[in-house]
Amino acid sequence: MRSQNEFSYGGDATVKRPDLNKEISDQEWDNFVYNRKSLRGKHWELWQHISGCRQWIKVERDTATHEIFMTLKANEEISL
């Protein structure tokens, strides 16, 4: 168990960056840069262990109760 204040929040973990040099529509780009669902309930998030090992991790957390269900390493895929 590590204290929460060692970590820094990094946004929605389900967002995928479009590939470099790929032609995409404005809408697709906006979805990547700006549009987020702001869910209430279970949510996959990115956190970085900023005051520790510097790893980015994926965390499934309930945005209303703050309950944490599961964590994944940066290279592990989320199965929705």
Binding site: S8, G10, R17, L46, Q48, I50, R54, Q55, W56, A74, N75
Partner: peptide
């Protein structure tokens, strides 16, 4: 300084591993 390091780590670990 701190933000740029996190920024690089983000891309290296999550986007372009």
């Amino acid at each position: 300084a701190a933000n740029v390091l996190s920024h690089l780590e983000y891309y290296l670990q999550l986007v372009w591993p």
